[in-house]
Amino acid sequence: ELSWTAEAEKMLGKVPFFVRKKVRKNTDNYAREIGEPVVTADVFRKAKEHLG
């Protein structure tokens, strides 16, 4: 699991709890794919757009 900024964690907190774990995993995987060592708010937004 990658490191997350406080802002990205806050955004994740707005995701319904029953899918939060999956969203975190998918976002981590997306960040790795694009070469990001940390999940930022920008990476979170891009993952959301990319993953739907």
Rank of each mutant, 00 (worst) to 15 (best):
E9Y: 08
A6N: 09
M11W: 05
A47N: 03
V39T: 02
I34Y: 08
R20T: 03
E1F: 11
E36V: 12
R20F: 03
F18C: 13
T40I: 01
V15R: 03
R24P: 00
V19Y: 14
K21N: 13
D28M: 09
V39M: 02
T27E: 00
R24D: 00
V15I: 11
H50E: 08
D42H: 08
K48M: 15
K46G: 07
A41V: 10
E9G: 04
E49R: 13
V39K: 00
T27P: 00
V23I: 09
T5K: 02
R32E: 04
T40Q: 02
R45C: 06
T5P: 01
S3Q: 14
G13Y: 12
S3D: 09
E1W: 12
T40Y: 02
V15P: 01
A47T: 04
A31G: 03
K22P: 04
R20H: 03
T40D: 05
I34F: 10
A47P: 01
K22V: 13
G13H: 13
V43C: 04
V38D: 03
A47L: 05
K10D: 14
D42E: 14
H50S: 11
K25L: 15
L2G: 04
R32T: 06
V38Q: 08
Y30G: 00
V43P: 00
V19R: 12
V43Y: 01
V43H: 02
N26S: 11
Y30E: 01
N29A: 14
V38Y: 07
E49A: 12
T27Q: 01
N29C: 07
E36L: 07
A8G: 02
M11K: 04
H50Q: 10
A41Q: 05
K21L: 13
V15T: 06
R24T: 02
R45F: 08
A41F: 04
P16C: 07
V39C: 02
T27L: 06
L2F: 05
G52C: 11
K10Y: 11
K14E: 15
V19K: 13
E33L: 13
I34K: 08
E33Y: 13
T5W: 02
N29M: 13
V39A: 01
V15G: 02
A6H: 10
A6E: 14
L51H: 12
K21G: 14
M11E: 09
R24M: 05
V23S: 03
E49T: 11
A31H: 00
T5M: 03
E7W: 04
A47K: 02
E7Y: 04
W4C: 01
F44W: 04
S3V: 14
L51G: 11
S3T: 14
E36R: 05
D28A: 07
A31P: 00
A8F: 00
F17E: 11
P16K: 05
E7L: 06
R32H: 08
R24V: 03
A31I: 02
D28T: 08
L12I: 05
L2P: 08
A31Q: 00
T27K: 02
R45E: 08
Y30L: 03
L51Q: 10
F17I: 12
I34L: 10
W4P: 00
T5D: 07
P16H: 08
V19L: 15
W4A: 00
E1Y: 11
P16W: 08
F17V: 11
A6M: 11
E1S: 12
G52K: 12
R45V: 11
R32W: 06
N26L: 15
G52E: 13
I34P: 00
K22W: 15
K14M: 12
L2Y: 05
G13A: 15
P16Y: 05
V19S: 13
G13C: 10
F44I: 03
A31L: 02
E1N: 12
R45I: 12
F44S: 01
E7A: 09
D42G: 06
R45K: 11
G52I: 13
M11D: 04
E7Q: 07
L51P: 06
R20L: 04
A8S: 04
G13L: 15
E1V: 10
H50G: 07
L2D: 03
D42K: 07
F17K: 11
W4L: 01
S3I: 15
A8E: 01
N26Y: 15
V38I: 13
N26P: 01
S3M: 14
I34H: 15
E1R: 10
K14A: 09
R20V: 04
K21H: 15
K25G: 07
D28N: 10
F18R: 14
V43L: 07
V15L: 15
T5Q: 03
I34E: 06
E7C: 05
H50D: 06
A41T: 07
A6G: 07
P16T: 03
F44C: 02
K48F: 14
K25W: 14
V19T: 08
K22N: 13
E7P: 05
G13S: 15
F18L: 12
A31M: 02
R32D: 03
A47Y: 14
A8T: 02
T40L: 01
F17G: 08
K10E: 15
A41G: 09
T40E: 02
K48Y: 13
K14N: 11
V39P: 01
K10A: 14
D28F: 03
E49V: 09
W4D: 00
W4H: 01
F44M: 04
Y30K: 02
K22G: 08
Y30M: 03
E7I: 05
V19F: 09
T27C: 07
T40W: 01
W4E: 00
T40A: 02
E33G: 09
M11Y: 05
L2H: 05
R32M: 08
R24S: 02
T27F: 09
E36W: 06
A6D: 13
